[in-house]
């Protein structure tokens, strides 16, 4: 963005409504990045095609399934409820920490093997 841009200095105040919890969410996060998911329930919408980078015509709700650690920051992996497509996005600074932490510890809540035996493996 340059100074000759007529929108320079004007914050984008447009909002979208979350598909799951109905919260009205501003398009830009407090750090100025464009949001791809609701900060309250972390649900996104399938509007970008990850493979080609263009627009997706699916539009289905994308639920958060996993937290991925990438160079000292967390990234959120979403799965589309309609078409099973996967996407990955940055965690915004005002995302719900409790929901984030719940997604991160969820595999450990139901391990497929007893974790007490891990010291003997």
């Amino acid at each position: 963005m340059s100074n000759t841009d007529p929108t320079f200095g004007i914050a984008d105040t447009s909002t979208f409504t979350c598909l799951r919890c109905g919260t009205s969410v501003s398009v830009l996060s407090p750090d100025g990045a464009e949001r791809d998911h609701c900060p309250s329930c972390l649900t996104g919408r399938h509007v970008h095609e990850r493979r080609s980078g263009g627009r997706s015509d699916c539009g289905g709700p994308m639920g958060p399934i996993a937290v991925v650690s990438d160079h000292d920051r967390w990234r959120l992996v979403h799965r589309c409820a309609h078409c099973d497509g996967l996407s990955e996005g940055d965690v915004a600074s005002d995302d719900n920490r409790l929901v984030l932490m719940r997604i991160a510890v969820r595999p450990l809540a139901e391990p497929p093997f007893p974790l007490e035996l891990l010291g003997e493996v």
Partner: peptide, 12 residues
């Protein structure tokens, strides 16, 4: 890169 759990508790 990551681990997720299905609703039935199975790891993915």
């Amino acid at each position: 890169v990551g681990m997720t759990a299905r609703s039935d508790g199975e790891w993915m």
